[in-house]
């Protein structure tokens, strides 16, 4: 049975302005994505493979509306994302970044980071959650990720790379998104930690019925983890399988 369509890129192009060095006038535009078209079904993993500078991360930025100027259409859950509010988008999409350390606020303890996310979730869905429920929920999540409760009183710099990445993934899934974008989430980790995080991602996908976009430059990893792979070279899809 075919799953329902979650995301569709319809001839999406994106260019950045190139400024003159003296007067800061727009001299020309550099095309970073050219007529990108692909579809992603619910519950599947789409691998986006390409070298540095090929435009992989730009795709993630467009879906999350970090970049808003582009041509073509991006349809998420049957709605053009240009017509979506940021609140609606947050209900549908979350992202895990390459460097977990830079995605966690260094001034905040892990307890605060997770509490903030749960409150954000409550706000999104207009739920009321009391402190006891938050505490229970956090402990449940930590237990699921096999993280010790002591790390709640730690700052991000006191955690290992694998712990930080697991916290970053937790932050992303607390909002219960439909689509999770993983932007090279394993590239800063050792092989044994990579295996651990990959196993968690497989488990979380089934538990929360998630759909992934997995951005990577590692062909072996993409072939292991993804159902479909698109290869991007200089902003153009050169292979789709």
């Amino acid at each position: 049975m075919k799953n329902s369509l979650l995301l569709k890129f319809d001839s999406v192009s994106k260019s950045y302005p190139v400024y003159s060095s003296i007067l800061r006038r727009v001299m020309s535009r550099k095309l970073v994505l050219e007529k990108i078209t692909f579809e992603l079904e619910e519950g599947k993993v789409l691998g986006v493979l390409g070298a540095s500078g090929s435009g992989k991360t730009t795709i993630a930025k467009l879906i999350t509306k970090i970049e808003e100027e582009y041509s073509g259409r991006i349809i998420l859950n049957n709605i053009n994302i240009k017509n979506m509010t940021h609140k609606e988008l947050a209900k549908n999409v979350s992202m895990v970044f390459q460097n977990p350390y830079s995605s966690l606020n260094p001034k905040h303890k892990i307890r605060f980071v997770l509490e903030e996310r749960i409150n954000q979730y409550a706000k999104l869905y207009n739920n009321k959650i009391d402190n006891y429920e938050i505490k229970e929920h956090i402990l449940e999540l930590l237990n699921y990720m096999k993280l010790p409760a002591e790390i709640l009183s730690c700052y991000p710099h006191q955690l290992s790379g694998g712990q930080k990445q697991r916290i970053a993934i937790l932050c992303a899934i607390i909002l219960k998104p439909k689509l999770l974008i993983l932007d090279e989430p394993l590239s800063s980790l050792d092989i044994s930690l990579q295996a651990q995080i990959l196993n968690y991602l497989i488990d979380i996908k089934q538990k929360y019925n998630l759909t992934y976009i997995f951005i990577t430059h590692d062909q072996d990893l993409a072939e292991y983890f993804c159902d479909n792979i698109i290869k991007i070279n200089k902003g153009v899809i050169c292979e789709n399988n």
């Binding site: 092989i191 295996a195 990959l198």
Partner: peptide, 13 residues
């Protein structure tokens, strides 16, 4: 623990 396509669908050790 290295992922590749021969291990697809299985959890990695």
């Amino acid at each position: 623990a290295y992922p590749d396509k021969t291990k697809k669908g299985k959890l990695l050790p």
